[in-house]
Design a protein around this nucleic acid. Structure first.
Lengths: 177, 177
DNA sequence: ACCTGAACACCGTTCAAGT
DNA sequence: ACCTGAACACCGTTCAAGT
């Protein structure tokens, strides 16, 4: 069965969901595809490029939001769908600014009342907030999973409430409250 | 010369500032201290613990802020003082929540007008914003340094302006604008 | 064109043995 | 108590050689 870029991204995504970002190695992906590590490099330049592809897939199903609040909630949902989703997207955003869906779509959600560069800043503020909040949530989940920290009852509910609180504040401050 | 936990943290901090987070390995720290890697583990449990110590040092000089705006600006200054400072602190915040200075001090800056748990959420919102903004800034610097992306004139000024814009929004939304 | 085999230059961590 | 020597189980990446 021929190796393709797409099959590699599929396998990487599966490893991410099962093992988390720390378990996502090129060697592990290769092993799952019954192939030697070197073979991957015929289809993908390096691990960064593969991670960028995985990040794009995480954000792929995001609907086109009608307003900033929906956009933020859709982003949160997309990130939460896979283990360590926020961490992966943050990492890719670091070396591929403007490469991912929200960086392109979110400024438009502020363009009606803000000049272009301020709309970009507003979009970044919102994205930073969502990524930070979801990353904290998922890292907590990771710590619970490893047993380093005990699970608390109502943790998920509090996370939702806390996210809502911060989102309301950020949106209000950006003129959408 | 006897190895101590403090000398190890010093060396790690120096490596971070010179090589960035990606260059900060236990082996590199050991080499700079003229010692075998295994020796470090007599004074430090593992790399995570060492990174936590480095993060604490990054935030060490932070003054006690009178209000949320000053706190945010002080945090930004502290993070910017060392290469990849935001990334290190974010990483440590992930597995040591409540372990670092801002997590302990910032809620108090909102406690006068918000109930305790909302004050905590407000503090987290603010910290997420600052960490995200500075991380983006520093990653950009890193990309420029590597030559992957060209430096633009006025980049630093725009970063300051963008930070101010987002900070104003977040603070206003949190009732401090 | 596509993949293997094998290597290179690294990692974090452990642990018997030395002093 | 503190450090070395040496190993274990990994990494990402490259590249001649095979098909």
């Amino acid at each position: 069965m021929g190796l393709t870029r797409e099959r590699i991204v599929d396998a990487a995504y599966a490893v991410l969901d099962e093992q988390g970002l720390s378990g996502l190695s090129m060697r592990r992906v290769a092993q799952d595809l019954d192939v030697r590590p070197g073979a991957l490099y015929y289809h993908v330049a390096n691990k960064q490029e593969l991670l960028a592809e995985v990040a794009a897939r995480i954000l792929d199903g995001m609907p086109v939001a009608a307003d900033a609040r929906r956009g933020a909630c859709d982003l949160r949902d997309a990130l939460r769908r896979v283990r360590d989703g926020a961490e992966v997207v943050s990492f890719v955003l670091a070396f591929r600014p403007e490469g991912l869906a929200p960086s392109r779509a979110f400024p438009g959600l502020f363009a009606d009342r803000l000049p272009a560069r301020e709309a970009r800043w507003a979009a970044r503020t919102l994205v930073h907030y969502v990524l930070g909040a979801v990353a904290e949530e998922q890292n907590r989940t990771e710590l619970v999973r490893t047993g380093i920290v005990a699970d608390e009852p109502g943790r998920a509910d509090e996370a939702d409430e806390a996210f809502g609180f911060g989102l309301d504040a950020v949106l209000h401050g950006l003129g959408r409250g």
